[in-house]
């Protein structure tokens, strides 16, 4: 701004910045994640960060802002609530212990998706939920949180993906499915460490890139009087098709 006094001739002002893309990790660190699962998860997120950075080199006008919510017996900010620029982001390792407060995690997320807290010009946010078990909070609380997420303006617009960790008998697929708004992707089932790494990378990279791509054109054919169901904002490339190899002796 001091330029104005040095320069001779007109000088224009106004701060220029990239548009933000808010990225939220919602990570289950309940007791059942203990051991190999949490170690793989920590490693996978660490590996995903440079991949997102690389993928977004083609979109330098996007500023990805990272945050993470960890939930076990309760939910709290693992990184945040102040968002960290992707290029400055490092993943502090998580330790597993306690129950599975998924609903509280979503409630915490909702606080930050508030219409007054988000930048109106921002790209659709990305929310990736990682969990290996049943939500231990009352079903109504989980349902209520999901409903609020479905109705919040930014919750609707967000790209919400779920990665289920471990054996299908240990988590509630139907409940997790309610979190995602991309039924064509469904619940990504990471039943091996390899798949977990692959899915975390795929979900975070694809969602970020898709969200930062060009506009969407409001073209709703919604139910009369409805508040815009199906106003989904982002089209995702399809999830990685993993080759079916029975590696059943891998303990998870």
């Amino acid at each position: 701004m001091s330029e104005e006094f040095i320069n001779d001739g007109p000088v224009l002002e106004g701060e220029i910045t990239k548009r933000p893309l808010q990225f939220f990790w919602l990570v289950d660190c309940s007791g059942s994640m203990r051991g190999k699962k949490i170690a793989t998860l920590n490693q996978a997120i660490r590996e995903a960060v440079p991949e997102i950075l690389r993928a977004l080199e083609a979109h330098p006008e996007v500023q990805v802002m990272m945050r993470a919510i960890a939930f076990s017996s309760s939910a709290s900010w693992h990184v945040g609530p102040e968002a960290v620029k992707l290029e400055d982001f490092t993943w502090p390792p998580l330790h597993a212990d306690g129950y599975t407060a998924t609903a509280s995690a979503i409630e915490l997320l909702l606080e930050e998706l508030d219409i007054d807290k988000m930048n109106r010009r921002g790209f659709p946010p990305v929310c990736v939920l990682l969990s290996d078990g049943y939500c231990t909070e009352p079903e109504e609380q989980y349902e209520r949180a999901i409903r609020k997420l479905d109705h919040a303006p930014w919750g609707k617009k967000a790209v919400r993906l779920v990665i289920a960790i471990g054996d299908g008998s240990e988590y509630d697929e139907q409940a997790l499915l309610r979190f995602t708004n991309h039924p064509e992707v469904g619940v990504l089932k990471a039943n091996t460490p390899g798949k977990l790494v692959e899915y975390i990378k795929w979900a975070s990279v694809t969602a970020s890139v898709s969200s930062s791509q060009s506009k969407t054109f409001y073209n709703d054919d919604e139910v009369e009087g409805g508040e815009g169901e199906g106003a989904r904002n982002v089209i995702l490339a399809s999830a990685p098709q993993s080759i079916q190899i029975e590696d059943a002796n891998e303990v998870f």
Binding site: Y218, D220, E224, G225, G226, E227
Partner: peptide, 11 residues
């Protein structure tokens, strides 16, 4: 112009 919600039939 979708600036306001569409009233339901009862409204």
């Amino acid at each position: 112009a979708r600036l306001r919600p569409t009233p339901g039939m009862r409204q």
